[in-house]
Design a protein around this nucleic acid. Structure first.
Length: 277
DNA sequence: GCGTCTTCCTGTAAGC
DNA sequence: TGCTTACAGGAAGACG
């Protein structure tokens, strides 16, 4: 599932393929993907004749900078973009097709139909949902450790849940939260309020290391993630705990354990990440 | 205000 | 073999 490193990989590869291309028309096969404007017909009309100037990333969101608009796209679990010749057969689960004036298409596929798109006027995107409450991601230069520490320490929630909250820290999903907590040596059920400033610094540093490494490897491939050129990510070969349940820990040989935390599969090493008191 | 639960979806794997 | 069921999960909205 695309988290920050996967979205960043997609951004980099997609940029080479679509910058400077002008949208001739749009086909929306599953209107629920389009969250804004309400009417997908209006979405198509607004985006027509717009040229893609840049592609940015905020947390796990892809931002397509157009002339007058910004297309804010979230891939959720299985969303993917691909660039294809217009005459090529359309694959199953393709829900939105952007037809370019040069007879190529940008196609959005999403088996589970969880992905979202918001088309917003340029310059307003940071003041509206879904980006409004989004925190900085730990790779951003202006990520504030102080703000992050404050939010964690005032929360009664467990740290697994807190790190999945995009208004506290952006970019982490289920895979990288488990990996981050392993590196930091923190049990996923530890309450935010009980963590020391030093432990929170450790978590932030572990998140940076995990994410940087995963970006270098082109992301993690669990089941279905491929970047926009169809290559698979390599980071899954370096996973310490995620999907490693019942295997020995690389560090101590203890058995990686899987539990459910707030409905999410959660993996940890009982020795490296001791249970909170 | 805060925390938890439910909902949206469908392919895959397990169980019978 | 074929059917049913559980499971995977990001984020918004409902609810206590």
């Amino acid at each position: 599932m695309p988290e920050l490193p996967e979205v960043e990989t997609i951004r980099q590869t997609l940029k080479q393929l679509v910058i400077g291309k002008t949208i001739d028309s749009v086909e929306v096969m599953w209107p629920k993907i389009i969250q804004e404007p309400d009417d997908s017909h209006q979405f198509g009309q607004s985006i027509q004749h717009q040229t893609i100037r840049d592609i940015r990333r905020k947390g796990k969101f892809l931002l397509f900078d157009l002339d007058q608009y910004v297309l804010v796209s979230h891939l959720r679990m299985e969303g993917k973009y691909g660039v294809h010749p217009a005459e090529e057969a359309v694959m199953d689960h393709t829900h939105v097709i952007f037809h370019f004036t040069d007879s190529t298409d940008l196609r959005y596929r999403d088996v589970r139909k969880f992905g979202t798109m918001h088309l917003q006027e340029k310059g307003t995107e940071a003041t509206k949902k879904p980006l409004l409450l989004l925190a900085k991601d730990p790779l951003e230069a202006d990520f504030s450790l102080m703000k992050f520490t404050e939010k964690v320490q005032k929360s009664e929630r467990n740290i697994k849940n807190i790190l999945l909250d995009q208004s506290v820290i952006a970019g982490l999903g289920n895979i990288y939260v488990d990996e981050t907590l392993f590196l930091a040596g923190i049990h996923p059920l530890t309450k935010g309020v009980s963590l020391t400033t030093e432990q929170i610094l450790k978590i932030k540093e572990a998140a940076v290391l995990t994410l940087q490494d995963a970006v270098k490897q082109g992301g993690t491939t669990i089941r279905s993630y491929v970047n926009s050129q169809g290559q698979i990510g390599m980071f899954q070969q370096q996973l310490n705990v995620y999907a490693q349940n019942d295997k020995p820990c690389h560090h101590c040989e203890d058995t990686i354990t899987k539990i459910k935390v707030n409905g999410r599969g959660t993996h940890y090493c009982p020795s490296c990440q001791p249970q909170p008191l």
